[in-house]
Amino acid sequence: MAAGAAIFALAGCSGGGAVTPTETATEAPPAGTDELVIASHGGRWGEALTKAFIEPFEAETGIKVTFKETSDFAASSAAIDAGQAPPEDIIDVAPAQINTFASKGYMIPIDYSSFDATTMAQVPDFAKTEYGAVFGQIAIAMCYSTTAYPDAATAPKSWTDFFDLAKFPGNRGMQSWLNDPTPEFPLLADGVSMSKLYPLDIDRAFAKMQSIKANVPQFAANPTVLTQQLVDGEVDIAQCLSSRVSPLVQEGAPIQIIWDGARLQSNTFGIWKGATNAVNAQKFIDFILRPEQQAAWAEIVLCAPINPEALPLLSDDVVALLPNAPDHNVFQKDDAWYLEDAGSGLNNFETITQRAALELG
């Protein structure tokens, strides 16, 4: 079975929940070696994975980890189709992508039964999906320039304010809906409560977007563009990825994050079917869910640790910049909803992105 385009279309969308694979990997994993190959991302993200997860894991187990800053999904899926071992053992992707691969028989289940029982009791159930282990979360939040709005009392404070061009005129920074759509935010601005968001009213979301479209200079595919627009003064208010904006705020950038109404979304590790080092991959995932490793990772990358027992190990200043700080009023992206059938042979994610290409660009 070749890797279809649908696999790659979901790269920017988080998804979760159980899937029914076309074939289940029931055979024993390969004997493996004293090695492990992990494919993830570079930059600050890769630095955090290396220092908080990989180096301590190598020191404790003696397993040599090869870290790749990019994933070759096509090569791995082609190898599995050919009955060969994929070039990577673990991949770091959004839950939707894990589920899509799993539905095609490309992933093996995570063996939570072999993990440390104390750690497993600490990790929330939603993070322990069959084919992907959530190890942390990022958020998309509203941010504003403190240069443009130096007085917090009169600054924008909600998604309602974000869409209120009369009260807060000027340009807005928004990410592209072609890879990671955010229809939740126009719905919140239109009066829908966080607890009533799903199932999303897509027609209502697109209608609300029309009210602001002319004030969006660019629907940015790269989230770095949005924080740069704020710093450069091209926009005064923007939606920002927490993993990009929190480090800037920590360094003193003139940006204020509004956590109220931010959307949490997950990052997962999955294991390829036929992975040479599948046993070591399971050991690695078990290791990185410990509170100590989670805290070390969160402190570097300023993302939400999935194990809440990591929070007491961090300073108050760091916790304040994490999406899942106790006083942040955020909501969890409904990963499963995006993968539900929307009719016409498309799921909700595909329906939104195709419509966005026509209506938002």
Rank of each mutant, 00 (worst) to 15 (best):
M1P: 12
A2E: 14
I7W: 06
A9C: 09
S14D: 11
G16I: 00
E23N: 14
A31I: 05
A31T: 07
G32N: 00
G32H: 00
T33Y: 00
D34S: 01
D34H: 01
V37T: 00
I38V: 01
R44T: 11
L49H: 12
L49M: 14
L49Q: 14
F53R: 00
F53V: 05
F53M: 06
E55G: 02
G62F: 06
T66R: 11
S71P: 08
S71G: 14
S71W: 11
D72Y: 10
F73I: 15
A75L: 13
S76V: 05
S77C: 15
A79I: 08
D81W: 13
P87A: 09
E88A: 06
D89L: 04
I90E: 00
D92E: 10
A94G: 07
A96R: 01
I98F: 01
F101N: 01
K104V: 00
P109S: 05
I110P: 02
Y112I: 06
S113Q: 14
S114I: 13
A121N: 07
D125P: 03
A127F: 07
K128I: 08
E130P: 06
E130M: 13
Y131E: 04
A133W: 01
F135I: 08
A139Q: 03
M142W: 04
S145W: 02
T146P: 01
A148S: 12
P150E: 08
P150I: 10
T154V: 07
A155C: 10
P156M: 02
K157M: 07
S158R: 03
S158C: 05
D161G: 02
A166V: 15
F168A: 13
F168G: 11
G170A: 12
G173T: 08
M174A: 13
M174L: 15
W177K: 04
W177T: 03
T182M: 05
T182N: 07
E184H: 02
E184T: 03
P186C: 03
L188M: 03
V192G: 01
M194V: 02
P199Q: 09
L200Y: 07
M209E: 06
S211A: 09
I212A: 09
F219K: 13
A220S: 15
N222L: 14
N222V: 15
N222I: 15
P223Y: 12
D232C: 15
G233D: 14
D236A: 15
D236G: 15
D236N: 15
A238T: 04
S246E: 09
S246K: 03
S246N: 12
G252R: 03
I257T: 05
W259K: 01
D260Y: 06
G261E: 04
N267G: 12
G270Y: 08
K273W: 10
K273M: 13
G274N: 11
N277T: 11
N280K: 04
A281Q: 00
Q282E: 07
I285W: 08
I288M: 13
R290F: 09
P291K: 10
Q294L: 01
A295L: 03
P305G: 00
P305V: 03
N307H: 06
L313Y: 01
L314E: 00
D316G: 02
P323E: 02
P326Y: 06
P326A: 05
P326N: 02
F331D: 05
F331T: 08
Q332W: 12
K333G: 10
D334F: 07
W337E: 06
Y338M: 13
L339S: 09
L339E: 10
E340M: 14
E340F: 12
E340K: 15
L346M: 10
N347K: 05
N348C: 09
E350S: 11
T351C: 00
I352T: 08
A357D: 13
